[in-house]
C-alpha cells in the first residue's frame, strides 16, 4: 500500500529523515512517535506525496511516487484520508460542506442521507450548518476525521489528532479510529502521547514506530 525503501528527505541542504524503510500493510494500525521536531509530520507528508524523497524509493499503491504526475497524486490522495492537527478547513464553508469536500472535488454526487449518517457517527449531526470557527477543538478534529473518511479511503493518516483535545475527547477520537481499523482501514497516528498509545492497546493490535536521530526505529512488539 505505502512502501518506503531507503528513503531520505533533505530540505535546504539539511537531511531531515535518513534511510527509512517501511511497508504499511492493508488493515494495519501504526503509531508514529518521537520527540517534537523529529520528523513525524515530514514522514506523513511523504506518505501522501506532499513531499517527495530526496533519495530512495517511495511506492504508493504500487506506483513510484517520483514518476507520478500531479493528477496521479490527486488520485492517490482520494485514497488516503489525512487528519491534520490544525484540521485545514475552508473557513467560509459549513461543517457539512467541508466534510463533503473530497466528494465535491472529485465530482462525485453527495448522498445527503449518507453524509448525515457520517456526521452522526462522529457526533456532529447537530453542528452540520455551523462554520468551522464555531466548533470546539474536539468537534473540529471529529469533523476533520469525517472529511478524511468520506471517500472511504484505504489509508487514514492522522497527525497529532489529539494534540489540542482533553483526555475524554482524545479517547473518543481514538475509538473512532480503531473502529475504522476494524473495518479494514490502514491507520497511522503520529503522536507523542504515550498514554494514548497505551490506551489503544486495549482496543486494537497496533505497532509503534519511532523516529529518532532522523531514522525510523521499529519498536516491533504489538502493544
Amino acid at each position: 500500500m505505502i512502501k518506503l525503501q531507503h528513503v531520505a528527505m533533505s530540505y535546504g541542504g539539511k537531511e531531515l529523515l535518513s534511510d527509512m524503510s517501511l511497508s504499511l500493510a492493508p488493515g494495519s494500525f501504526h503509531f508514529l512517535t518521537g520527540p517534537s521536531g523529529a520528523g513525524k509530520t515530514t514522514f506523513l507528508k511523504l506518505c501522501y506525496a506532499e513531499l517527495l524523497p530526496s533519495t530512495g524509493q517511495l511506492t504508493l499503491f504500487g506506483k513510484d511516487a517520483l514518476g507520478m504526475t500531479r493528477d496521479d497524486i490527486a488520485g492517490i490522495r482520494q485514497r488516503i484520508g489525512v487528519v491534520h492537527q490544525d484540521c485545514q478547513f475552508l473557513e467560509h464553508l459549513s461543517v457539512e460542506e467541508n466534510v463533503a469536500l473530497p466528494m465535491t472535488v472529485s465530482r462525485r454526487p453527495v448522498n445527503a442521507g449518507e453524509l448525515h449518517e457520517l456526521l452522526g457517527w462522529v457526533g456532529l449531526k447537530h453542528r452540520r450548518e455551523a462554520l468551522p470557527a464555531q466548533l470546539s477543538g474536539g468537534e473540529r478534529q471529529r469533523a476533520a476525521l469525517a472529511r478524511a473518511i468520506i471517500m472511504s479511503p484505504d489509508v487514514i493518516l492522522a497527525d497529532e489528532p489529539t494534540g489540542n483535545l482533553d483526555w475524554e475527547m482524545s479517547l473518543r477520537l481514538l475509538s473512532l479510529l480503531t473502529e475504522l481499523n476494524r473495518m479494514g482501514k490502514t491507520v497511522v497516528i503520529a503522536t507523542h502521547d504515550l498514554n494514548l498509545i497505551r490506551q489503544a492497546k486495549a482496543q486494537v493490535s497496533a505497532r509503534v514506530l519511532r523516529i529518532a536521530n532522523r531514522r525510523l526505529q521499529h519498536a516491533g512488539a504489538d502493544l
Partner: peptide, 16 residues
C-alpha cells in the same frame, strides 16, 4: 494559498 493547500489535501486536481 491555504485554500489551495486544503483542496490539494483532499485530492483536488489542478483543473478543478
Amino acid at each position: 494559498g491555504q485554500v489551495i493547500a486544503t483542496l490539494r489535501l483532499v485530492g483536488a486536481r489542478d483543473t478543478f
